[in-house]
Design a protein around this nucleic acid. Sequence first.
DNA 1: GCCTCCATCTTTCCATTGTCAAGATTTGCG
DNA 2: CGCAAATCTTGACAATGGAAAGATGGAGGC
Lengths: 210, 210
Amino acid sequence: MSGKTEAAARARRDSYHHGNLRQGLIEAALAIVAEQGLAAVTLRACASRAGVSHAAPAHHFGNLQGLLSELAAVAFRRFHATIAAEQAAAGPDPRAQLAAAGCGYLRFATANPDLFRLMFSAGRLDWTNTTLAEASRAAYRQLADTVRPFQRDPDDEEEGVRLRTLVWSMVHGYAHLLLEGYLAQHGVSADGLSHLPDIAALLPYPPSDG
Amino acid sequence: MSGKTEAAARARRDSYHHGNLRQGLIEAALAIVAEQGLAAVTLRACASRAGVSHAAPAHHFGNLQGLLSELAAVAFRRFHATIAAEQAAAGPDPRAQLAAAGCGYLRFATANPDLFRLMFSAGRLDWTNTTLAEASRAAYRQLADTVRPFQRDPDDEEEGVRLRTLVWSMVHGYAHLLLEGYLAQHGVSADGLSHLPDIAALLPYPPSDG
DNA sequence: GCCTCCATCTTTCCATTGTCAAGATTTGCG
DNA sequence: CGCAAATCTTGACAATGGAAAGATGGAGGC
């Protein structure tokens, strides 16, 4: 399979210049992570999959960390889109929006565990990468927007920080423990959504309908 | 420094048999992770630090995963002990015990970020390792004991699962986001404990004193 | 249209790591 | 005391990251 896709990649390319290698390497990385996991994403594996020599990625990404950072940026954007899609399908009620965000968070994490792990392995990433930094900020803004209706005072930044931290900790902790298998290990059902905390019920100022 | 400790390790050992190499390699791994981080813990680095050849660890641990699993077992025991120490210093009130457990969780995570990361990278570990599995179970029992007083019905396993999952998600999520730097990245103070959620205040059945 | 420079690749090499196999050495048990 | 097992050492190979030197093509300027 792998040999075949490499042959196909080379067959499609009869010129020294790939033409769009940067994007091709990112797509190769996405394919490898989906098929074989994050550990299989190496510079040589991506180069081979894209049909170039092993040193070609260096020109576009500098090193493996650079490539992984681009991969994480794509992951953050897909993550944001997954949550947005869940929220678009939910009612406008803040409780429904919050629940939808939680569902989206979990859906993305369970559907893409290795991308999720990469996203939250900050030390492996290059945060000077503006694409990555912006994608991460956009995801945080999405959380902030979802939580703001639960603030007593929407202009109180300290209250906002406290609520955002609370909500994010709960959802992220649950997602992380779930996909690492620690909940299943201790007898909690592995059915992803069944034990997702009902965050809205726990927040100190739940806005009522209207 | 490293060359010196290796020379010292070899100097102390004038026999072909190390004598207690298994323990020596674990100690070497602990030293390396503390000084240089988890990525620096390799079979060769540990072997060198312990004063033996690169292939010696295989006899005791099978492979790198085996060594990392023993390292994680030690980490889980230290983690449990940190929480126990915090709880020993707190009052017997369930709220105080819960708060102490949260503090201990955070203290361990911030003092030992790379051991914490290893502990919660389940896929890197060998769960057939009984030492590791037991240490992980003991930590979960500690959580269960701390949360039980908040159950309306201590014999209701489903309520117990729900509360343990809720509490663990909150504390773990906060710790993970904090040590990966994501809270600081989005403007939340990096002071570890300042934004740790007051879990007891959020639980649906907080036991009062007595 | 040609030339030059830059971007984009290829090839080669080195260091490091994990792991395996073969063999050496020591220890413990019968 | 001898033997088997445990515990190491030595050597080798494959894979990976990354650097350096060089090759190739494209674009822009004259």
